[in-house]
Design a protein around this nucleic acid. Structure first.
Lengths: 200, 200
DNA sequence: ATCGAGATGTTAGAGCCTCTAACTAAGTTA
DNA sequence: TAACTTAGTTAGAGGCTCTAACATCTCGAT
C-alpha cells in the first residue's frame, strides 16, 4: 500500500507527500493540537530535521494537510451535487450533508482546517473555492446569473448551520440532545427554513 | 487591581485563582493551543513547578479555566433573559445573542471550551447547566411543563446555529460573506425559522 | 564520463516545554 | 510547641521545535 517511492538508502523518494499523509493520520488519531512533527518523523522513518527541507515549520506542514482537506472537501461537494437537478433545494441540502459528513469522517482534520491561527492566502483561497460550490447552487436557486451579494447573504445562514452541526456532531453533543430525527433530515429541514423564498 | 492576597514571601496567597486568571488572559492573547504553563508561572511570579500543587497537569488547569467560562456564560444567559417575557421568541433569541456575544468577547476561551479533548464530568455538567437556560425558555415557549425530549429536539437546531455563527464570527468568515444585516437580526431570523410552531 | 550545483538527507545541539523528586518554609492543630 | 499538612522551591529528565554544519544523492552541462 505504498503510494510513494521507496527510500533509496539515503534519500526518501517523496518525503513531502508522505509527511503530509502521516501528519493527517496523526492529527486524526491524536487530535490536532497534540500532533508532533517528531512523531511524524518516527513514522516516516526519517530524522527529526528532515521535514524542515520541505516545510518552513510545523505550522506550514499542518497548513499543507489542511489544504489537502479543503481540496478533498471541494471534490466531495461536487460529487454531492451531481445526482440532483442544479439549483434545487435538494442539491443545496446535499452539499450541506456532504459538509457534515466530511467533518464526521475527518473530525481531527476538520477542526484543524478551521483552527488555523491566521489564514494563509492559499488556505483561504482553497476555502473560498470550496464554499463556491454551494454558492453556485444557491445562485441558481435564486435565479441569479452570478454569485452576488444577495447569494452570499443567503448562503451564510446555511454555512452557519452546517458548520455548527459539524462541531456538535464531532463533539458528541448531538447524542446528548436526544435527536430522534437523522442528521440528514435536520439539514434538509434547516436548508428549507433558512433559505429565502425562491424567485418566480 | 489585585483580586487575591499578596505573596507573603514564600507562600503566594491564592496561586490557584491567579493561575486561572493568568491562564485565561494568555489563552486570549496567544491562542488556546499556544498557551504554556511556564509563561503563566512567569507572569504569576512563581516557579514552573508550583502549579502542580494545584492542578494535576496542564490539561487540568485549562479545564478549570473552561469551567469558569461556562459559569460566566450561564450568568450571561440568565441576564439576557431577564428583560424579556419568559417563553417568548424574544427571550430565546436573546440567549442566542448572548451566546454569540460571549464567543466574540472571549474567542480564545470559547474555542478552548469546545476544543476539550475529552469532556470531564465537571465540564460536561457546567455545559449542561448552561444549555439548560435556553431549554427552559423553549419549554415555556412550547407550553411544556418540563424539559422533555421534544424540547431538546427543538433546541438543538438553535444551538447548532449560534454555535456555528460563533465560530464563523471568531474566524472572521462573516465579513467575508458580506452580510448586510447585523448578527442580531440573523439570530432573530434564524430563531423564528428554526423553532417549531408554537402550541396553542 | 564526470564535475559541480542543488536538493534532500544526516547528526548535534540550543532553547523551549511539561512534569517529577526531593527539599524547605509557613500555617494548623493537638 | 511538636507533628502534620500545605504550598512553595531548585534540579533535572525527557520531549519538543528548529538551526547549523555536514553528507549523500541527482542531474544537467560540459
Amino acid at each position: 500500500m505504498q503510494k510513494t517511492a521507496q527510500k533509496t538508502g539515503y534519500h526518501h523518494g517523496d518525503l513531502r507527500e508522505q509527511l503530509i499523509a502521516t501528519t493527517r493520520d496523526l492529527v486524526e488519531e491524536r487530535g490536532p493540537d497534540v500532533f508532533s512533527v517528531s512523531e511524524a518523523c518516527r513514522r516516516a522513518g526519517v530524522s527529526t530535521a528532515a521535514p524542515y527541507k520541505h516545510f518552513e515549520d510545523r505550522e506550514d506542514l499542518l497548513r499543507a494537510v489542511a489544504l489537502q482537506g479543503f481540496a478533498e472537501m471541494t471534490e466531495r461537494f461536487h460529487a454531492a451535487v451531481v445526482p440532483h437537478t442544479p439549483g434545487t433545494l435538494e442539491a443545496i441540502a446535499a452539499v450541506g450533508r456532504a459538509y457534515v459528513a466530511f467533518a464526521e469522517d475527518n473530525p481531527g482534520l476538520f477542526k484543524m482546517m478551521f483552527a488555523t491561527p491566521k489564514d494563509h492566502p492559499a488556505t483561504e483561497e482553497a476555502g473560498h473555492g470550496c464554499y463556491g460550490v454551494v454558492l453556485d447552487q444557491i445562485a441558481r436557486y435564486l435565479g441569479h446569473a452570478e454569485v452576488d451579494d444577495a447569494v452570499m447573504e443567503a448562503g451564510f445562514p446555511l454555512w452557519t448551520f452546517v458548520h455548527g452541526l459539524s462541531f456538535l456532531r464531532i463533539d458528541g453533543k448531538a447524542e446528548f440532545a436526544k435527536m430522534r430525527v437523522s442528521v440528514e433530515d435536520v439539514i434538509q429541514g434547516a436548508t428549507a427554513r433558512l433559505l429565502p423564498p425562491r424567485k418566480g
